[in-house]
Amino acid sequence: MANVRSRHSSIPGIKNQIDVQVGLVGDAQVGKTSLMVKYVQNIFDEEYTQTLGVNFLKRKVNLRSTDIIFSIMDLGGQKEFINMLPLAAVGSSVIIFMFDLTRPKTLQSIKDWFRQAHGLNDSAVPILVGTKYDLSIETDERVPGNISCTAMRYAQVMNAPIVFCSTAKSIHIQKIFKIALAKIFNLTLTVPEIESIGDPLLIYRDFGNNVKRQSKSSPKRTGSMERTPVSSQQ
């Protein structure tokens, strides 16, 4: 206990707070809302609820002495909500393009999503995420292989890290946002990459590094210079 206190006493009393906006785009029913709810509330619901417009959730994580506040914008995947794409794209530091690993057509739609979102905000870091990995490995063996190869080619074109995840089984959910933080702040992430076809891919080191940065999509520093009570005496 004394060590903990002494360690905390060495931390500077200034606490930064940074807002990071993350946009989730992709076809309907790929699992955008599920991913957001899982990451923020650690809840997974099998029942599908259609997103009307844009969902918005926040989560605060603590990175050393800095509070990172993720503002996650979840855009409905239906075509009638495509006019709201600027809400999720503009101002976001990271745009997560999501597709369903069991539906190849949703991967093809990534092209349209990327063209439009990248046109609205070319300074955001793109991340390509394949969802429902747990269900994909139960299908025919060749389907995940084809999708994996094609998704990796897409990731190369998009200059985006690629992650296969499963919200139901809690696979690579937190790593998506760790990669996002690493790419935003140029941090070095030590998570081992997974490159084998058939495994849940996790490739991020060579992608998403030299994204053009503008002040519009930069994280916003708010509420900084808070003086926290630090016990100097024991």
Binding site: N16, I18, R64, S65, T66, I184, F185, N186, L187, R213, S215, S218, P219, R221
Partner: peptide, 8 residues
């Protein structure tokens, strides 16, 4: 510790 200061 320099990473505490974000890139921007």
């Amino acid at each position: 510790d320099d990473a505490l200061q974000p890139q921007f």
